[in-house]
Design a protein around this nucleic acid. Structure first.
Length: 793
RNA sequence: GGGAGCAUAGCUCAGCUGGUUUAGAGCAUCUGCCUUACAAGCAGAGGGUCCGCGGUUCGAACCCGUGUGCUCCCACCA
């Protein structure tokens, strides 16, 4: 059989992935073995494969394949997340292109479009993962809105409500006026913007006939004055002491508001006087609660001014900000305008300027739930890798805030709350049940009278159940799969979602299964480009991953991304590392070609048996040493380092040194025993490398020898005991051999003459290896070495 | 404003408990080679104030203090 000059990955990869699927290697069923379960962080159904997924899933595949080769029952679960906000935004955009507005549709009609969209585009990313070689158990593919999953989410809501952890409350939230939805704090991005600070005069209420006097406040949001409920000054501020308890008038609408004193106000900022707008500012709301101020909500859910604002009704608040200034100026209220740089929140999803807004939302009280989850990590029941994230986690968990779980969206799990016409509500699994709770003999109701809450649940309120719900942990409690595969072993995810997701999964695990959801969490870095910028679609610096796989091969992509990916550190992606991966593929390919040449001419015996025994012994030890090191590194999730030493073992020790050493003279036969031994080394190398580069290793493994089993599921044999007399690394031997070659090239080396070689080594045992080289290369009679590490022949 | 982390070759990083390290690797660079597995290769070379300063120690890239620079997380001042 003729082997191509260079390794060509595409066909090989397609062939083997199809073969593995057909053989069912990735499917798992509970048995007597130890399980190794990994649940894939479900990508958004809308997603396509990018570098982050590639890194993340390569790591998981490496862990899973390795576990499988160690004889464990490996189970890796794929799936997707319905991603309510992101998906709904895409569907709305798709409808807009067709000239349909969401508001013109009924909820049912909109959801029909959304499902249609999901069936068509959702899950593209799962197909792309196959290209990467991911050994996922496809039969177990889950979706956070599968019927059973959906019911479990609803059941959790009802359960937490019954336990008193879920409550309904008017709270200040971040409001996205474009998506008309509440955002969690984490979904708000603060940006520095150039704003204007307006100084406005408020008339103070004085006895009749007195000279009018004013108090000046500073604001960047002049439109909110229409919702002012008070003016606040610092109690110790001498300038305003005479005004405590007095009243002032809101400009333009002349509403009378009190002047209050509270030490929240900074004396040295602006004028030292603060206008208090409880409905539209987080801190003002707190002040409002404290002093029982009126709450005047001047904004509609789309960002336009409401009836309560009295003026500018129906106009967008940003437009009002412009329009109100001339009016204030005309009325003599504008003192001055200053340029001002401040931080303003924007919606992560729609980039709309976020408005703090008072709203009736559903909340989860987190204090109780977080306690076992904090302990689990602090007491190393769950291990974080790298451990530095423990501190971050503790800090957040100790200061945890309640979780706003309602979203004003249709795509998602609809909140199971039902309202009676009089405003009473019931939380129930069905409208019939709600009716039972709400209907009383004094107040009989029918189904038509009650209405379900229009809102959906936060996406994370479903994905926090992921590790057990993929095994139907709640919908079919105590089932065989759950009991066998749960708790899962390792979660691989990005540190960005440690609070969104990781912390909450831990809470849900303890709350609903009584155990941790996983034993180890491996945090990957963030993928950045060469300049260190985070890769993202919006920046346009994310390379086309499928294109890269086509160009270099999946193995090379996996190699490239893993070799530059130290645990917990960000990864600076550079295409040159993919080239390195491709070159490595080719090196392996050429080693195979060499073996194939030898295979054609093996012979029974050879005179240099001692030397061969030494070479074999030496490489056996190198191999075993590296195998042990790899075990050690993998246990600590130092995958990048493990790959590096395997790379070096293959290239430097096996190819550059061992193969050169045993290489027979030109067109000479190779000893049969030596050849067999070498094949076995090569196979072991393929096995060691397989989790990292599954395709080429499988291909070589089969081309080298007729194999009954596939490498993909071949179990690692026990590591042979290391003979501690020979440990010299290929690097050292290379130095020796190159010194010899150098001497020979310069014709310095002649029989019976001596040469000085200055080789330094820390291992006395290395001298034995050096001695052997010298015996072979120069037929030295013996080697003399001293403590000063000078070898003489 | 509160917290965490980082700083070692041009780049990305190892260097674990202070001592065999005259500080290493990969990539990049330069030089010479198309030598019968491999130019996607081989052989070699150059490249460092281990961020600055001070301290502990027989001995510091490593421990302590301090300064500087960078990154991230949290909060966010009208």
């Amino acid at each position: 059989m003729e082997l191509s000059k260079n390794y060509i990955p595409t066909d090989v990869e397609n062939k083997w992935y199809a073969h593995w699927l057909a053989a069912g290697y990735f499917n798992s069923t509970p048995d007597h073995r130890e399980s190794y379960t990994v649940v894939m962080p479900p990508p958004n159904v809308t997603g396509i494969l990018h570098m982050g997924h590639c890194l993340n899933n390569s790591i998981q595949d490496i862990l899973v394949r390795r576990a499988r080769m160690m004889g464990k029952n490996a189970c890796w679960i794929p799936g997707t997340d319905h991603a309510s906000i992101a998906t709904e935004a895409k569907v709305v955009a798709m409808l807009r292109e067709r000239g349909i507005t969401k508001s013109s549709l009924t909820r049912e009609a909109f959801l029909a479009y959304a499902w249609e969209w999901k069936e068509k585009y959702g899950g593209i990313i799962l197909q792309q993962l196959k290209k990467l070689g991911c050994s996922l158990d496809w039969k177990r593919t889950s979706f956070t809105m599968d019927p059973d999953y959906y019911q479990s989410v609803i059941a959790v809501f009802i359960d937490l409500h019954q336990k008193g952890h879920i409550y309904r409350g008017k709270r200040m939230i971040n409001w996205d006026v474009r998506a008309k939805t509440a955002l969690s704090d984490e979904e708000v991005i603060y940006k520095e913007v150039q704003s204007k600070l307006f100084y406005l005069n408020y008339l103070i209420e004085l006895p009749e006939n007195a000279e009018p006097t004013f108090i000046t406040i500073a604001t960047v949001r002049p439109e909110t004055i229409l919702g002012d409920a008070a003016i606040c000054v610092h109690p110790d501020d001498e300038r305003y002491k005479h005004l405590h308890g007095k009243f002032a008038f809101v400009p333009l609408i002349n509403r009378k508001i009190p002047i209050i004193a509270d030490d929240y106000v900074a004396i040295d900022f602006g004028t030292g006087a603060l206008k208090v707008t409880p409905a539209h500012d987080m801190n003002d709301y707190v002040l409002g609660q404290k002093y029982q101020l009126d709450i005047i909500d001047t904004m509609n859910d789309d960002g336009t001014m409401s009836e309560a604002s009295q003026l500018f009704i129906g106009i967008d608040r940003l437009e009002v900000r412009k329009q109100i200034i001339p009016k204030l100026e005309a009325a003599g209220h504008l003192l001055k305008i200053e340029e001002y740089t401040n931080q303003v929140g924007f919606s992560e999803r729609t980039d709309a300027m976020v408005e703090p807004r008072l709203s009736l939302q559903w909340w989860v009280s987190m204090k109780k739930l977080s306690e076992p989850a904090l302990l689990a990590v602090m007491e190393d029941e769950i291990h974080f890798h790298p451990a530095k994230f423990k501190n971050l986690y503790r800090h957040w968990m100790e200061n945890i805030k309640d979780w706003c779980i309602s979203r004003q969206l249709w795509w998602g799990h609809r909140i199971p709350a039902y309202y009676a016409p009089d405003g009473r509500f019931a939380v129930a699994a069905s409208i019939e049940e709600a009716l039972k709770q709400l209907s009383t003999p004094e107040n009989p109701l029918t189904i038509i009278d009650i209405k379900q809450d229009e809102d959906c649940l936060d996406t994370w309120f479903s994905s926090w159940l992921w590790p057990f719900e993929v095994f139907k942990g709640l919908s079919q409690p105590d089932n065989l799969n759950l009991n066998y595969y749960y708790p899962t072993k390792t979660l691989v995810t990005a540190p960005e979602i440690i609070f969104f997701w990781v912390a909450r999964m831990i809470m849900a695990g303890y709350e609903y299964q009584g155990t941790k959801p996983f034993s180890d969490v491996y945090f990957t870095g963030i993928v950045r480009d060469k300049q260190g910028k985070k890769m993202s679609k919006s920046l346009g610096n994310s390379p086309d991953l499928l294109g890269l796989i086509d160009k270099y091969g999946a193995d090379a992509v996996r190699f490239g991304i893993m070799i530059s990916s130290p645990a917990g550190n960000d990864l600076l992606f550079d295409e040159s590392s993919l080239e390195q991966g491709r070159n490595f593929n080719n090196k392996l390919w050429n080693a195979l070609k060499l073996m194939k040449m030898w295979e054609a001419r093996t012979a029974e015996s050879n005179s240099n048996l001692d030397e061969q025994a030494f070479a074999i012994n030496w490489f056996e030890n190198r191999l075993a040493t590296v195998q042990l090191e790899v075990n050690f590194l993998m246990e600590q999730f130092r995958l990048s380092e493990a790959l590096k030493i395997i790379y070096s073992l293959v290239w430097d020790d096996f190819c550059s040194w061992y193969l050169e050493w045993i290489k027979p003279g030109f067109e000479q036969p190779i000893d049969k025993g030596l050849y067999k031994k070498t094949v076995s080394f090569f196979e072991q190398l393929m096995q060691l490398l397989h989790p990292f580069m599954p395709f080429i290793t499988e291909e070589i493994y089969h081309l080298m020898n007729e194999q009954k089993d596939d490498l993909c599921v071949k179990q690692n044999g026990p590591i042979t005991k290391i003979d501690d007399t020979i440990t010299a690394s290929g690097e050292l031997l290379k130095k020796v051999i190159s010194a010899l070659r150098d001497a020979r090239n310069k014709n310095q080396l002649k029989p019976k003459e001596s040469i000085d070689l200055h080789i330094q080594t820390s291992q006395e045992n290395d001298y034995k290896a050096i001695e052997a080289i010298l015996m072979k290369q120069v037929n030295a009679k013996g080697v003399h070495y001293t403590n000063e590490a000078i070898a003489n022949s």
